[in-house]
Design a protein around this nucleic acid. Sequence first.
DNA 1: CGCGCGCTGACAGCAAGCTGACAGGACCGG
DNA 2: CCGGTCCTGTCAGCTTGCTGTCAGCGCGCG
Lengths: 219, 219
Amino acid sequence: MRALAVEDDPRIAADLRAALTSAGFRVETCGDGEEAWFRGDTEDYDLVVLDLGLPGLDGLAVLKRWRAAGRAMPVLVLTARGTWQERVEGIEAGADDYLPKPFRMEELIARARALVRRAGGHAAALQEAGALALDTNRMGVAVRGVPVQVTALEYRLLSYLMLHRDRVVPSTELLEHLYGDDDAREANALEAVIARLRRKLGPGIIATRRGFGYFLEPA
Amino acid sequence: MRALAVEDDPRIAADLRAALTSAGFRVETCGDGEEAWFRGDTEDYDLVVLDLGLPGLDGLAVLKRWRAAGRAMPVLVLTARGTWQERVEGIEAGADDYLPKPFRMEELIARARALVRRAGGHAAALQEAGALALDTNRMGVAVRGVPVQVTALEYRLLSYLMLHRDRVVPSTELLEHLYGDDDAREANALEAVIARLRRKLGPGIIATRRGFGYFLEPA
DNA sequence: CGCGCGCTGACAGCAAGCTGACAGGACCGG
DNA sequence: CCGGTCCTGTCAGCTTGCTGTCAGCGCGCG
């Protein structure tokens, strides 16, 4: 599964890359309209995530050119503010789905999967690390095959740790991801969530590196 | 697999061609009612996608003439603003399925596939998930074999959940599908529909995942 | 040993979702 | 036209259970 993420904001681009990668895609990113058009026209992707606000060539123009040239890969369009006109424009230009910012990565992944499935492919829905497994379609969690019920916040935390399972995630980064820096919470809120999760999941899943942060116990 | 797309708006026609092509159809397009009638009557198609707003002969008239002449290929009807009345007219004229504009290509493809499969006799017109069954021919609903009467809106909701029965569908996505964001509704409207449906269907059919969305209870 | 970071259980506030009531509007039959 | 019926969005109140805060404790580390 090959995906192209077209997004000029480097932070969002990094998030897209990470999320799509964890969903099983081989991801390429690009921040410029001209380059996006060229690559979409010359390469075969199973999915394109396309931001409309682009330097160089506008996203809609890129999409129209692809469709005019007969390129039919599934395209998921992102746009800053989901006005009605933009949406209609997007659909008429040939978008297969459409997501207004700001959005949750979980929703983007869900829709991306649906698109790819419709197009005929099958992407693995399970992400695993050690004894833990996340089902990104059902937003479900299982430990050693046994399903565990977790809340939305808990799921987002696990999903972020899963995304970065190869490193220790600093607590500040987790706080920022869960709440955003505008909405400041006490550091203890995070610890409370971790504690509740550990009680549900049992030992040997979430590990602490004192003074740094948390990570998922590898196999 | 041969498909005929009857659509006078050249942009949408191009999109239809692209989407259907990518779904594996050999596509022919035509933008005029008279010509559509002639081709549908003299050629053999596995699928026809028919827009109702046409120059020349009206789409509904074309469909009626085909059926009167005994042509039985699957026909998927598109129409600009999906009032319930139009839908009934379309079905009485012999349409096999019906899609209001604007729509997602993803959904059109899914429905087109379902139609073709059905015509081939391989898949039943019945879609099932757990105790729930949808009869896509009669727009009927049954729980554990017992028929239940639902309204048009309720049926669309169920049918969308059925289409995506393998994942949790975010509330935002459901709202979009039911209303489109040109016509903004309170989030509570969705909850009201869900509540009414649950009362009709009984427990154990529609499940909530708090903070994410809804899904059909699997078997 | 003492400090400080992290953990935990209790608890209260609050937000998401549910429900019943109501009203506007579409449709239908007279 | 007019009255009845059905559909459906809105509103208000309610329930549920999620989640941030707090206080106190354990434990590793210096």
